[in-house]
């Protein structure tokens, strides 16, 4: 299954949350790979605790592969390469977790027919090997997004299930921007030959950095603020529903979480139960999202 992670703007925690979902799926036993298609600012390597990812590899990242200067994009086994000690003990029964990094100095680039071809080949090849293929796109519309839309419209990839996660923050501006982004995706996809309804049905939203009243982080806010927040939350719900991104199209919400916002790292069970630097609610949200990601009951209807 291909999972495309997109966001309306930056700052939604798209990369770090998607990396956590990939990690959770691998823990659950799936064979998982994570493709850093955020070509302008690749960060996935840092999230997995592999900052020196391309040292010694030269130009062998996804940029080089799509440009045609290498035939084998570099693959990093996260369990074996991460610098985070708690991640290095791969639990028995877990699946592989493989990162395909972007070139460090690659930058955003215009894609052409050749790169499209190579993108299709890459997806086909990874699909034979992995249960879940997470593709992290940059914020907003990008060349990479158009390329994957085009790739998934090709007959070769039609039987490979593809799902889209749209990350957005829980503010009026973000709700509007996310709704606009999705209508743009569906329209562009339809022009490329996607069936509009099927594509729309494969898109779900993830509300990120949602400040939940009553959460430990906000337990000290005055009652007037709390009341106002609840009322505003309801207003946003109505607004989101009016823009077509109401509750039925939401896969989950991730609470405001310092570990995600500040360190941008994987949240392990140890972070929640041992050192307790991350909140249990965040952990639960990530577990829930990762389960729903592959649960057909949450997908299908636009």
């Amino acid at each position: 299954m291909l999972v495309f992670a997109a966001s309306d703007k930056g700052g939604t925690g798209r990369s770090v949350t998607s990396a956590n979902l990939a990690y959770r799926r691998a823990l659950a036993g799936d064979e998982v790979c994570y493709l850093d298609f955020d070509f302008g600012s690749p960060t996935a390597a840092a999230v997995f605790g592999i900052p020196r990812v391309l040292d010694g590899f030269g130009h062998q990242g996804l940029h080089s592969y799509l440009w045609g200067t290498t035939d084998e994009p570099a693959r990093i086994d996260v369990w074996a390469s991460t610098e985070r000690k708690t991640l290095r003990n791969r639990p028995s029964g877990s699946g592989r977790l493989v990162l395909l990094p972007a070139d460090r100095d690659g930058g955003e680039f215009v894609t052409d027919d050749e790169s499209l071809h190579r993108c299709v080949d890459l997806f086909l090849r990874l699909n034979a090997e992995f249960d879940v293929i997470v593709v992290d796109l940059s914020a907003g519309r990008s060349y990479a997004m158009d390329m994957v839309l085009r790739a998934t419209s090709r007959p070769e990839l039609r039987s490979v299930p593809a799902r889209w996660l749209i990350y957005h923050r829980w503010t009026p501006q973000h709700v509007t921007a996310a709704a606009d982004l999705v209508s743009g995706i569906v329209k562009a996809g339809a022009d490329m030959g996607h069936e509009e309804e099927a594509l729309a049905g494969a898109i779900r939203f993830v509300r990120a950095a949602v400040p939940a009243v009553g959460s430990p982080l906000l337990s000290q806010v005055p009652s007037t603020t709390a009341r106002w927040m609840r009322a505003y939350d309801e207003k946003l719900d109505v607004m989101a529903a009016n823009r077509g991104i109401g509750k039925t199209r939401v896969l989950g919400s991730v609470p405001l979480e310092p570990v995600l916002l500040i360190c941008e790292q994987l949240i392990t069970d140890e972070d929640v139960n041992g050192s307790r630097i991350a909140n249990k609610a965040t952990w639960q949200a990530l577990v829930e999202l990762s389960e729903r990601l592959t649960d057909d009951a949450y997908w299908g209807q636009p």
Binding site: E31, L124, R125, N127, A128, E129, F130, D131, E156, L157, S159, V160
Partner: peptide, 10 residues
């Protein structure tokens, strides 16, 4: 059809 009966590596 790319609908493989099981996932495997090359």
């Amino acid at each position: 059809d790319h609908d493989v009966p099981f996932k495997s590596r090359r």
